[in-house]
Design a protein around this nucleic acid. Structure first.
Lengths: 259, 259
DNA sequence: TAGTCTAACCTGTATATACAACCTAGAAGA
DNA sequence: TCTTCTAGGTTGTATATACAGGTTAGACTA
């Protein structure tokens, strides 16, 4: 039979999670220490085993603990050192800032893959690929040069698209919504073409995101996204799911960190 | 009563997840489409509601669907556009590449917080903070300048640490293993000091990671991590948890993408 | 002594049941 | 017509129970 709960109470499983996180957080439980087993939690916390199971299972997913069937639950070694950055679609990102996105198509053509493009897309030299070169604007200021190649047979109607109304990224994810991706972020000096398109000064570096996206086990698109170093940065927050998410954290940020 | 299972079978809840992911993946279910409710899955898939609930709940955590109590479950809008980059502790990162990490301590002192440091750490002007300036080496080549400030009362024994044997990052997470963090990644030209420490050429940009880490609701450390643009990049993979994780993806990468 | 077996724990999964809270369409009332 | 109420569907949580399978310590046997 279900237990009666006062309205809007914190769920029991969440209380368990919080309790264990607290004990890890304040050092009472240290890495590789044994965490109370499900049955011990049943006893001491007066919950059902399923509830204890859910708490411990979610803590596992979140990287706090490690569970070994037959042995027990242990505090995970070093959570922490991997912080996470999110790279979003440029149009969404601009819209999210409440700004206006526009783009200009410089080139939209069919080519034969060669050299590194062929290698990156896992196709033979000479196979058909589409090439799209665009500039994205945020409130009329150029913010990204997108240099993208797409495997031709993955997106046959690529040349018919109007990339000023739908970004290549949005177009591709509309074709196949799920994909793996690899990314690389680099700081490098732009070539003259990119520098001119982005209205960059001579000594300004660019932040380049190189992204290769996979679908059904094969690479389908390969993009270089160039941004002006003085006007673009990647930001990310990291909160160990369970933290009350102190809200205005992201706001102070930009003001406080200007160098 | 429990259902008998053949040994090592794929769990029922995972089968449900795979089935729904497949239907999203092949376009049968498109963003904002309605996903079968728990009770419908109970009927059509012959599982208990708890099993259906687990499948849908995990799909929610993984970003595939969105659930609204009282209404139903819907395919999440654009999963995809947010790709993820991981920023790891430099020592772990170097160790992971099978290389040797070493570091040199340039400065390790107590200071009074001023200007942007005070702002970033949410302390008054003049409050005690520790300052650590280090260079990290990968196989004797300088790869990172770490410029870090730490709130003094968070880490009172900071000056006693030997940062050549334990990195500041490792030291801090040993004190308080759980934290929130904010990060910013920028491409910028280094100042002369950084350029010299990292043996960079005059026209080489640096990739800067700015990281502020929180503990117990307050900022405790603020670090600028400078890397030589020609020798350092951030990499990340993104696979919608459930993909068979095509193994060698990360390997081809570096070779293929050299520009 | 050395090897084997077993009991007692552990996690992992699955089910049936129960109640609370939320949402909406449509019925019932003013 | 407009408002209010309600029934039924939906998610969210909690419990009790059951069985499968991994792990280990200690008892048992050869």
């Amino acid at each position: 039979m279900g237990r009666t709960m006062t309205p809007h109470a914190i769920p029991r499983y969440q209380q368990l999670k919080d309790l264990i996180i607290e004990r890890i957080s304040n050092g009472e439980l240290r890495p590789s220490d044994r965490v109370p087993s499900e049955n011990e939690l049943v006893q001491s916390m007066s919950v059902s085993r399923m509830t204890a199971n859910r708490a411990l299972r979610e803590l596992t997913d979140e990287g706090y603990v490690k569970r070994i069937a037959g042995r027990g639950t242990y505090v995970a070694d070093f959570r922490s050192q991997s912080h996470v950055l999110e790279v979003r679609n440029i149009a969404d990102e601009i819209a999210h800032r409440g700004h206006v996105h526009a783009s200009e198509v410089i080139r939209q053509s069919r080519q034969h893959a060669r050299g590194e493009i062929a290698k990156a897309l896992h196709v033979e030299q000479g196979v058909d690929v589409f090439h799209a070169l665009l500039v994205h604007f945020e409130n009329a200021t150029p913010i990204q040069v997108e240099d993208r190649h797409i495997v031709a047979d993955f997106a046959p109607d690529c040349l018919d698209q109007d990339f000023t109304t739908i970004t290549p990224s949005a177009y591709l994810t509309a074709i196949s919504p799920l994909a793996e991706a690899e990314q690389i972020v680099r700081a490098q000096m732009p070539n003259a073409a990119v520098r001119d398109r982005l209205l960059m000064t001579d000594d300004e570096p660019s932040l380049v995101v190189i992204r290769r996206t996979w679908s059904s086990g094969r690479p389908v698109t390969f993009a270089r996204l160039h941004h002006p170093g003085s006007r673009y940065e990647l930001t990310g927050q990291y909160a160990p799911a369970g933290t009350p998410q102190s809200t205005p954290v992201g706001v102070v940020q930009l003001e406080a960190l200007s160098q």
